[in-house]
Structures are given as structure tokens and as C-alpha cells.
Design a protein around this nucleic acid. Structure first.
Lengths: 243, 243
DNA sequence: CGGGCCGATTGATCTGGATCAAGACGGACG
DNA sequence: CGTCCGTCTTGATCCAGATCAATCGGCCCG
């Protein structure tokens, strides 16, 4: 119950003023469809492995992932990490009413972040019910995902965890154009492990296991084709079951 | 990512109209301090073990726990349960924009629930930014707790999990009057186990273990005195550490 | 083309917690 | 006061996954 983990929200529940923000747009954009004020935005670029922000940093902006991706994690006293989420293009990171980031973000690959002034957004949300409702819906959406994550993390069984993870990633991830059955996994095996509460070795073994069972096909280290999604669903739901 | 887990929120971030709802108040209360409309509320009573609502039930009300407590859990295909949260007096259960409950509630003891019409609350939130902001704050608060739970569930080590749980309960639980170091644990060991992703046996053994280490004192089966909260914090933070 | 590096995979062993099994406690009720 | 039943605790065994260790593989860079 540390105060104020920052929120991440999805683009598709944002007002047009934020949806319309493009890399090519001028730094200050005006939204005609909603009463949000001018948003003065800049874009920052990060190399793979860099930390856009860390636990405890003052939180002046809400970030929108333009390209690349982020791993969001909590550091523990003994050096362990708990990955709480990943963020991909279109996702917003840093909503919430607190002054400091409660987790650290690390760039998975070269990543561009658009910086949205946090105070302006918050100010407007207090004035306009539509914006506040949007934020509420967004937080509720996040909460659903978090419960799903709790379910996954609490599940015994590496197979159930990894199956749930693959299915979740296939739902939210942008598939690489042509084939919707191919899931893109840009993050490290270590990150997947810390997300699921496993070790990298177990993640690797379970991938191999799935491959041997014919459930997936490993295109390359960053792409997996789901051959038997039905079976994966069964594994994800009937966790650590006998059958 | 099943749509719409219901939300539970804390009393202290609710508008006065909801805060002022008491068991003794008339069923319909008028809030003068905020524009929320008349709320026609009834009170329902449940015996220990009963299910106020189940996964998939139509969600007509937001419930406020008046007395007693609830275990909120997801049922899995193989009969396992994942407890996602507990609700105690003052907590609200069932916020969110979806039409069905996504989890089941079970009364821990004899429990009274005040039923707040969900549609009215939602309608008002769309009109009034203050209410919507309140809902947002509430959801954000819930999300913090959920991240905390993810952290706990993802932690290796029964000691770290149980220590984190005891500390969390001591923070949110109403202490029994006199002694703030005594934590009330009204739920079954099984519920604690399903909350933490352990078995009831392991929970029991870990309690015994803590007792033997002098970290806690077991007053009775439902009350635990924290003797060395510092050590518990260390266990909760430096999870599964060597020391 | 060849070396160095980091991450992924695979192998071998160990252990914490699950599981199976039995007993102890305690409240409800006659 | 004693029986019953559900819960909690304790004990013994087993196994999934952690850990330790080695190899493999791709990628960058010279």
C-alpha cells in the first residue's frame, strides 16, 4: 500500500486530443472535440536498456509510448524485480494523482516517448466529467488487467502462467502485419520470468516444452506462432490441473 | 483480460452522500454537499458462508459493507480459487462499468451489505466531474493495492508472502479497540492461502514458524499480535532472501 | 572473417512448498 | 457435560521449479 503507483492506460479510451497526438504533429496540439487545453508535448528518445524514469522520480509528465516498448517494474531490497506491466505503442504511462513514480521504466528496445504535461491533464479532469470519466474507465481497465495478473501470478504451474501470458500478449500486442497468430515478444526472457514470478530458465524450458507438445512454434527468439490456442486457453484456465 | 472486474473502493474517498450512509439512516438519503441524487438503499444480511453475488450475476447494485466481511474470489475451471481481495466495513464492492460481476463474494462472517443503486451512481458520475474524479481516485487506489498484491503473489517464499499479508492487514484492518498491534484475521486459513497462492498447510506452518521466531504471538485463531513488525517488513521486502 | 559479449538454452542437482495423511482443537448443539 | 463436525495444526513424502553450471547462438565490432 505504498502511495500511488502510476497508472498506464490505453489509447483507445483517451479523448481525441490525446488520441490525435502524432509524432509529426506540432508540439502543441489543440483538441476541438473536447475541452482539454493546449497540450505542450515533446518527444524523448531512449536507447535499449535506458531508464526513462525510476521509482521515486518526480512525476511531471504522462508518457505516451510512440514506438518501442517499456518494462515497468518494482525493485526489491534484495535486488529482485517484480515486473508489474509492459507498455507498448499507444499505451500511456504515468497517470495517477501522486507526485512520484512508484515503479521504474526500462526501454525494451529503442523507444520514443511523448511527454504530456501531467498537471494540465489533471486540472482538466477536475473540471470536465468526460475527462474524469475517461480516466476512471482507464483505471478500471487497468484494474481488470491487474486482477488478471494476480490470477496469473497466483497460479501454480509454469505452463499455466506462460500460457496465460502468451494469450494476453497476443490480445494486446500489435501483431506483425500479416499473421495474427504470431505473437511478438520484444522483452527479455528475464522480464517474462519476473512478470510471472518464475526464473528465466523455467520460462525457457516451458517454451521448449510447448514447442515439443506442438502448441507453439518458435519463429525466432522474439516471435512465437500459436499453433493450438485452444490448448493454451485450457492450460491457462485449468491451472496446474492434473490433465 | 476478461471484461470488467468489479471495483471495490474505500469509504474515505467517497462523496459525503455515501460516507454519511449509516445503518440507522433512512433508506433514502440526500446529500447536500454534492450533487448526487437520492440514493434508495436497502440493507441485506448474509450468514457466514453465503454468497451475496457470484461471477456472472447481473450487477444492479454497488454494495457497501456495513458489518462483517467478504472474500472476493475468482473460480477456476479445475475448482481452484484465486482470492483477489477481502472487503471490510466501509469498503465498497461492485463499482465499475460492466454489467456482470466478474468475481464471487462470500461472507466471512455474518455480514450486512447496504445496496446502492449502481445506475444512479454511474449516471451522476457522467454529469459531475467531482464524482467521476472520486471514482477515478478510488480506482487508482484499488490499482495500487492490486499492484501490491501482484508483488506479494509474485514473491517466492511463503514467509515473505505471509509477512506482507500481515502488514497489509494491520494497515487496513480495524484493530480491536485497545491494541493496534493486534491484527484481526476473520477469514479462513484457506482464504489466506488462496489469496497468497499457497496452501492452507503452508500458511499454518509459516504462522507457527513466525511464532517460533518470536515475530508474532498468536492470541487466538483469529487474532495475531505483531511482536517484531520491523522483521516482518524486512521479510516482506527482501523476499526469499538468504537472510 | 574472427573474437567477444550477452542472452537463451540445456543439463544436473537441490529444496521449498504441495500433497497425502493423521491428529488436535474448539465451537455448536443436544 | 459429552458428542460431532469443521477447521487448524502437525507429520511424512514427493515433485515442480529454483539454483548452479555449462554450452550454444546471435549480434556487434574490429
Amino acid at each position: 500500500m505504498l502511495p500511488g503507483y502510476a497508472l498506464r492506460c490505453r489509447m483507445n479510451v483517451l479523448p481525441p486530443c490525446l488520441n490525435s497526438i502524432k509524432s509529426e504533429a506540432p508540439a502543441a496540439v489543440r483538441c476541438e472535440a473536447c475541452p482539454a487545453p493546449w497540450m505542450h508535448c515533446s518527444v524523448r528518445k531512449f536507447q535499449k536498456g535506458q531508464y526513462p524514469f525510476s521509482q521515486g522520480d518526480a512525476q511531471g509528465y504522462v508518457y505516451r509510448v510512440q514506438s518501442g516498448g517499456l518494462t515497468l517494474f518494482l525493485s526489491l531490497a534484495n535486488g529482485r524485480r517484480q515486473v508489474v506491466d509492459f507498455a507498448f505503442p499507444g499505451d500511456l504511462v504515468g497517470l495517477g494523482s501522486h507526485r512520484q513514480f512508484q515503479f521504474t521504466a526500462q526501454a525494451i528496445t529503442r523507444t520514443e516517448l511523448r511527454c504530456i504535461p501531467r498537471d494540465e491533464l489533471r486540472l482538466q479532469s477536475l473540471k470536465d466529467a468526460r475527462i474524469a470519466s475517461m480516466l476512471y474507465e482507464t483505471a478500471a481497465f487497468q484494474l481488470e488487467e491487474a486482477y488478471d495478473h494476480i490470477l496469473t501470478a497466483g497460479q501454480r504451474g509454469s505452463e499455466g502462467k506462460l500460457a496465460a501470458f502468451l494469450l494476453a500478449m497476443s490480445r494486446r500486442n500489435v501483431h506483425h502485419g500479416d499473421d495474427p497468430a504470431v505473437v511478438h515478444l520484444p522483452m527479455l526472457r528475464t522480464d517474462i520470468a519476473d512478470y510471472l514470478g518464475l526464473t528465466a530458465e523455467t520460462v525457457s524450458r516451458t517454451f521448449t516444452n510447448f514447442k515439443a507438445q506442438g502448441l507453439i512454434k518458435i519463429v525466432d527468439q522474439r516471435h512465437v506462432r500459436l499453433i493450438e490456442p485452444r490448448s493454451l486457453v485450457r492450460l491457462a484456465n485449468a491451472i496446474a490441473a492434473s490433465g
